[in-house]
């Protein structure tokens, strides 16, 4: 049951993060296949809800609740990294809370956002 829920939350978080303007992709973890997809298209080619997709969802170590870690790559397009990261934080948190509520679970959710890379104009030439 917990495994299913984790997968659900991973999917929810990934979808929310990728919808934020300025997020180019989620940071793949040491997987050349998904990295190739990111490098060539920069689009949502990574599988959602897996270890490779740059989201971690764990039970909070201190007390009840969930801790979601989002690792993402940004493309600026006129926005500040800070604002993009704030959006990711807020939207992922809202989406996960909403998902849990739909599963009749009301729990604390903390989100951590790590920007692992930036795509600049020069990367695209």
């Amino acid at each position: 049951m917990t495994v299913d829920r984790t997968t659900t939350l991973l999917d929810t978080a990934a979808e929310a993060a990728l919808a934020v303007p300025g997020v180019a992709a989620l940071q793949p973890r040491r997987s050349p296949r998904t990295a190739a997809a990111v490098a060539s298209t920069g689009t949502d080619a990574t599988p959602k809800g897996t270890r490779e997709s740059g989201i971690r969802a764990d039970r909070s170590p201190d007390g009840p609740g969930w801790r979601i870690e989002v690792r993402c790559i940004l493309s600026f397009e006129g926005r500040r990294a800070l604002e993009i990261a704030q959006n990711v934080h807020d939207r992922v948190r809202a989406a996960v809370i909403s998902r849990l509520a739909a599963l009749d679970a009301v729990e604390r959710v903390t989100v951590e956002v790590t920007v692992t890379g930036v795509v600049t104009r020069y990367d695209l030439t």
């Binding site: 990294a81 990261a85 704030q86 934080h89 951590e112 956002v113 790590t114 920007v115 890379g117």
Partner: peptide, 17 residues
């Protein structure tokens, strides 16, 4: 990143770039 209320971080390599 400069937000005291949220856990927002950036990798040193990305910021350096």
């Amino acid at each position: 990143l400069a937000d005291p209320d949220r856990a927002l971080r950036i990798a040193e390599s990305a910021a350096a770039k």
